[in-house]
Design a protein around this nucleic acid. Sequence first.
RNA 1: GGGGGCGUAGCUCAAUUGGUUAGAGUACCGGACUGUCGAUCCGGUGGUUGCGGGUUCGAGCCCCGUCGCCCUCGCCA
Length: 554
Amino acid sequence: MFVDLRDRYGKTQVVFTPDGGAELLAEARQLRTEFVIAVTGKVAKRPEGTINPKLDTGEIELRCRKLELLNKSLVPPFQPGTMELPGEDLRLKYRYLDLRRPDMQRTIVLRHRMIKAMRDYFDEHRFIEVETPMLGRSTPEGARDYLVPSRVHPGKFYALPQSPQLYKQILMIAGYDRYVQVARCFRDEDLRADRQPEFTQLDVEMAFVDSDDVIGIIDGLVGKLAKDILGLDVKLPLARMTYDEAMERYGHDAPDLRFGMELVDVTELAKEADFRVFKEAAANGKRVRGLNAKGAAEKYSRKGIDELTAFVMQDHGAGGLVWFKVEPDGTLASPTAKNFQPDLLKRIGEKLGAAPGDFLCFVADTFETTCKALNGLRKRLAKELKLYEPNAMHFSWVVEFPMFAYDEEEKCWAAMHHPFTAPRPQDLAMLESDPGKCRAQAYDLVVNGYEAGGGTIRIHDQGVQQQVFDLLGLSRETARDRFGFLLDALQYGAPPHGGIALGIDRCVMIFGGLDNIRDCIAFPKTQKAADLMTEAPGQVDARQLKELSIKINT
RNA sequence: GGGGGCGUAGCUCAAUUGGUUAGAGUACCGGACUGUCGAUCCGGUGGUUGCGGGUUCGAGCCCCGUCGCCCUCGCCA
């Protein structure tokens, strides 16, 4: 009789033979799946012809002399070794069973190794890890806070940190010139496949540095992680691209550079078009942009193109999708083609490098909408057309983000990053004259189309800080009320400083080749921020609420 | 808050236009076999078709509501 004995390190076959005694064999027959046992015996080479080359331990077996049942198990709702992965809700409810699966074990170990490598790297570079509070003060900017009621201050609340941003700046002012923390952060916003309400950042801050210093340190980290974890040699320094260039060439501030298929602007040509959609867009200050899916013409039927059209319209707000298939003779063909002068079509095709068999897509709309729609289209087409290797990795930087984005609803400027972000020195003058053109000392690390991290150089000058607050419509009183402690601290000898935060969960997800952040977190939450195992959030006693001076309205 | 997908045995799934007693694989239980390792063979247990209404002679299937999970837009400085 045979038993597969599994632990964290693998599986070994245990053999019970009749010559071990009838009693032992009878005991072994009582064993069931997931029982916990201790076995004493001799490890031996398997007899001729019973070696299983498919298993790491396929050449040996443990001949049992003594069996101890340490604990029984209920019949599990799914087997950790199952081929058919159960539904995710079931996996989350029985997370302890799910975590026994080799895939999950690999990811959890990968996560450990990555965090260990990060800590080692920063330790080697003289960074020190400092813990910052979880119970802090709510700052209404940015994401929604998770609030914690105070018992001793009725009606007042702590907020869980969205990030340790302010604390790490204070640490710079306090003279700890190289800080790092593996920090838990909380944001009460709607979730996505790559977002959790509570997540982990590698938080970094340095004093006496500029953008290049911070980027340089992270370059080194990326090189180490790629080498140690994936065995990859990444060429350093990592390539950099400005925000404007990223938006122009890819329509997104975190472009996936594992493949090309760049966006091409044809607004100038569109001005000449008889086709009204193009002509009017170009005339009204909008943009006409497109992309060329090389050789994809035959892969998209009329129905497939209808789906793409619905995709850019419904999901990304485009007015429509104009497309052409390039015929063997090089002409652009589609139902809309008849609205164009043939000569113009030819020039449009040339601009996109069209060759027979190519599939061209265009969107005419505002710059923002063409970005959204074509970025969405680019990613979707790349996936469907398999334009990149599944295990390809691409790291790069996007730099020089705008300082501000105009909020149309609120009719005011909003900080693109956070209100402590320093403008580029050469843009200082534009803070007053043309805030929209002002560029920040900001940098995002982009990996395979994900924003893996982002950071900035901070404002350490009281006057500049005030200018930014003014621009954001933050009154002196409000600013004082919210970040008075930081403003005070900045006046006690604050060094120039800046830093970055990397999303550890996302990094593990990308390095692990996963498409979902929950799979690299031991105990993740669902899209509605619930924990299916503990059933959090849950109700609390009336007594607890009373102590907190809280009444529930429902 | 909006759009989409899914929900049927413990698990993974099937069930023709709405039509007989809702099936299969697997798991589980019992037996046979005993060098097996995704064992095999024989037999068996197992269903509030997520929940609540409605339409119909008749609903797993259609309609309304609701709950849950996933993807996505908004949102996430």
